[in-house]
Design a binder for these strands. Structure first.
Lengths: 179, 179
DNA sequence: TTTTTTGTTTAGAATATTTTGAACGTTCAT
DNA sequence: ATGAACGTTCAAAATATTCTAAACAAAAAA
């Protein structure tokens, strides 16, 4: 019953779990996306309990996150109270969505906090002018860097073909040789 | 004694802690880098215990990681057994180093595991040809995507001026308006 | 040799995160 | 109305991670 295809499926889903963790998501999110991605049919929550090996509660939470990131879609069927989930398969779209949501959010926080620190230095620097100047310098350098990074991200998001921003990128040799 | 500059310093270091966690590093790593970055002098392990508020053991581990990522440098002084740490201040260099090391490692893993899964399908697909074809299709799509991503990363790493790959990127308006 | 100074390791404590399972609310069919 | 089928929530359990403090090792000084 546990044939080779199921083995392959397991292996693939495990890989997605790793990737999810690496990006700071729960591994169940990877498992749920994997199960949906490898299914020819849209899946229900109960399917996910079977196919992704998670509890129903967890499945419920993960599909919500995944939908928010636009990695899956919820399909409703008339005369059927179940929710059906199918995968987004355009990975570049997904990346853009994730960059635009999750990253941006944390990003703005960071930029904001650094800017605040710099302000605090400006408003405080009466006693030790040399130290204040040094701190302001360093903080400003980082703030400027974040500003540039933000600009870069925004440009990437604006590209309508993120797929091939540089010539020679889509030639598609396997691309796994050591750098 | 807790003057405004110290407050600002704290605030900044806290921000770095957040950033560290977001990137999947321990927050102590952010604190240690922050302390070093905001010091006009190179710091010793014991300085870090004071200034970053971590234990010596933790400091020891974090400086090793940071050095490995080329975010700090270890300076040795003749006739002095202490190690002195000073920050790398070229953030673009740091990004390249991190992309090249940490990301690449996990990346190759992922790409490898997906490729393996695909092989497993190829070698297993005797019983259910339709299903095998479907799985192979999906897995191949993801494998190809990873290949492209890897290519993109390699191109970025190869740019010698990551700072301004696009025109209009270094104009330096604060860059924090909503997208 | 012994003591001091310094960096490293590690077992266990502390903390943070994820997962589960059961309770709950809603909607629909009977 | 009642019960069945769903999805959601939440407190508690399980798990994973991080941190500390103490022991340790190496090297230099006394």
């Amino acid at each position: 019953m546990d044939n080779g295809l199921d083995k392959a499926r397991e292996h693939f889903i495990q890989a997605l779990c790793r990737i999810a963790r690496f990006w700071g998501f729960p591994k169940a999110m990877g498992a749920v996306y994997g199960a949906i991605y490898l299914s020819p049919e849209a899946l229900t929550l109960d399917d996910l309990v079977r196919l992704a090996g998670v509890s129903k509660g967890s499945a419920s939470i993960q599909v919500r996150s995944l939908e928010r990131l636009r990695m899956i879609r919820k399909d409703l069927r008339v005369g059927d109270r179940k929710d059906y989930y199918s995968p987004e398969t355009d990975f570049w779209k997904m990346i853009k969505s994730i960059l635009g949501q999750r990253e941006k959010q944390e990003f703005d926080r960071a930029l904001g906090a650094v800017a605040e620190s710099l302000d605090m230095v400006h408003k405080a620097g009466a006693a030790d002018l040399i130290r204040a100047a040094f701190l302001a310098d360093r903080m400003k350098a980082m703030k400027d860097f974040f500003g540039q990074l933000d600009g870069l991200v925004r440009i990437i998001l604006a590209l309508d073909s993120l797929k091939a921003p540089f010539p020679g990128m889509t030639t598609g040799e396997n691309g796994n040789e050591p750098r």
